[in-house]
């Protein structure tokens, strides 16, 4: 128990320190570490749905969720403290030592690489989760061309494509889209 809690704490501490680019970028880092905590892709997709109804920062929601699923209440607490601690440490350092932090070219140069990378990381996380959801159990993406019907769930695929299109192109409300997907799923998916 203590070992698992320390592992949660250290993983989320690391993610907090490297967490440039906001909550979704951190979400992709959490996904890439999630095998350590036994979190499935389905559980990750559920997390994103919960994010819409639970208020607050995405990274705090994610740390609490992953920590809770992995080690219960204490897991949630250790993960959340881990992801929060870098903010406190860095803010104190900035306030005490770097009065001209904002003008610092070093930080802006580094961010010019990290910001676009964050976009790629989030897209990769979306693809990884989507494949886990759209592929039928036990199937590989390599079987797609030989046996498309036996490989992917077409209803899931259509929900994915239509939701992405409506949200990206027409900025339709995500909660509404999720509700509709739930209803479509109830009718068409078993």
């Amino acid at each position: 128990m203590i070992t698992e809690l320390m592992e949660l704490f250290l993983s989320f501490l690391k993610i907090g320190f490297a967490g440039f680019g906001g909550g979704y970028a951190m979400l992709s880092m959490i996904l890439s570490e999630s095998h350590k905590f036994g979190i499935t892709l389905e559980q990750f997709a559920d997390l994103n749905a919960l994010d819409m109804i639970v208020p607050g920062p995405i990274a705090i929601n994610a740390a609490t969720y992953v920590g809770y699923l992995s080690e219960g209440f204490w897991g949630a607490l250790f993960a959340t403290v881990g992801v929060s601690l870098p903010s406190f440490i860095l803010v104190v350092l900035v306030m005490r030592f770097f009065s001209r932090y904002r003008e610092s070219h070093l930080v802006n140069d580094i961010l010019s690489g990290i910001k676009p990378a964050a976009v790629g990381l989030i897209a990769a996380a979306a693809l990884t989760i989507a494949l886990g959801i759209i592929l039928l159990p036990g199937q590989q993406i390599s079987n797609l061309f030989s046996d498309p019907l036996g490989t992917v769930s077409f209803v899931s695929l259509i929900i994915f494509v239509v939701t992405a299109f409506l949200n990206i192109k027409f900025d339709l409300n995500p909660i509404l889209l999720t509700l509709i997907a739930g209803i479509v799923g109830t009718i068409c998916l078993k």
Binding site: A49, A126, S156, L157, T178, A181, I183, G185, L189
Partner: peptide, 29 residues
Amino acid sequence: ALAGAFRGIRAASSALILSAAFSLGRYNL
């Protein structure tokens, strides 16, 4: 009965993460 609903919600949810990448990309690319 709820299994289908969850599968639908998960598919939509992964689409919304993709959409987050798009909206961030508009500013950072």
